[in-house]
């Protein structure tokens, strides 16, 4: 039976979540007959179909970006469609992937608590949550900057294929620190003064001829 992955990124296929899960799937299917199916939650009209896929699966991974400190609205819409399955016997094992633009994993820990409770509410075996911060912008990073991150997600897939679990060692590799050290915060503050920390946003603002409007307050 294929691994069912629900991709809860509001950007759908063109998302950072997709890039990470592509690596996971490559590892999961390498050198074996494993299969993985990805379903995109941006198609909110498919909620009932997705609920049926969920109830028929053995292993499910729900992956999404952190949005206003929780799951995106489309993911909550999907979760509400699962309500009839609460406490039913035979629900799948359930794991999660939460990625965030903020560098610190700490931002994701609060929704992680919700996800753990969600698995319990559904009566699913909880497989854990892969948390990764600092993901915004990986689409435009050169390969040498994403190689280690992609390799870790690939290895998580390999491990999952063998043990139906997330490797705690690899999870620790993704989140060596919960918060930024004093030194890193100081460096960030200095770089912030030079504008370097805003490079990604400034590049897009300039590309879209919106640089002069960057501090606009249209609702003031």
């Amino acid at each position: 039976m294929p691994l069912i992955i629900f991709n809860g990124s509001p950007r759908g296929k063109n998302s950072n979540t997709t890039l990470l899960m592509d690596q996971f799937i490559a590892g999961y299917t390498h050198g074996n007959d494993n299969q993985a199916q990805v379903h995109y939650l941006i198609h909110t009209k498919d909620a009932d179909k997705n609920m049926e896929l969920f109830q028929d699966a053995e292993n499910v991974i729900l992956a999404f970006p952190l949005y206003t400190d929780a799951m995106p609205g489309i993911v909550k819409h999907f979760i509400e469609a699962l309500q009839p399955l609460c406490g039913r016997s035979g629900n799948p094992r359930l794991g999660f992937v939460v990625q965030s633009g903020f560098p610190e994993p700490h931002h994701c820990r609060f929704v992680e608590a919700y996800l753990q409770k969600l698995a319990k509410r559904l009566g699913c075996e909880y497989l854990g949550t892969i948390v990764k911060g600092g993901v915004e912008g990986i689409q435009m990073m050169p390969p040498n900057m994403t190689r280690k991150l992609f390799k870790t997600f690939y290895d998580l897939g390999v491990f999952f294929a063998k043990y139906n679990a997330f490797s705690s060692e690899l999870l620790r590799e993704l989140t060596p620190r919960e918060n930024m050290s004093w030194l890193r915060r100081t460096i960030f503050r200095i770089l912030n003064l030079t504008g370097l920390t805003n490079f990604y946003w400034n590049m897009h603002l300039k590309k879209n001829n919106a640089w002069d409007k960057r501090f606009d307050r249209p609702f003031a």
Partner: peptide
């Protein structure tokens, strides 16, 4: 959790913030 309707609306408050990041309470 609060409803998907509310979460959808909360997501649409993002324009009220600026994309630039600052350190606040030792966090980004």
């Amino acid at each position: 959790f609060p409803s998907a309707l509310l979460k959808k609306t909360q997501d649409k408050l993002i324009p009220l913030l600026h994309p630039y990041i600052q350190i606040v309470h030792k966090e980004c």
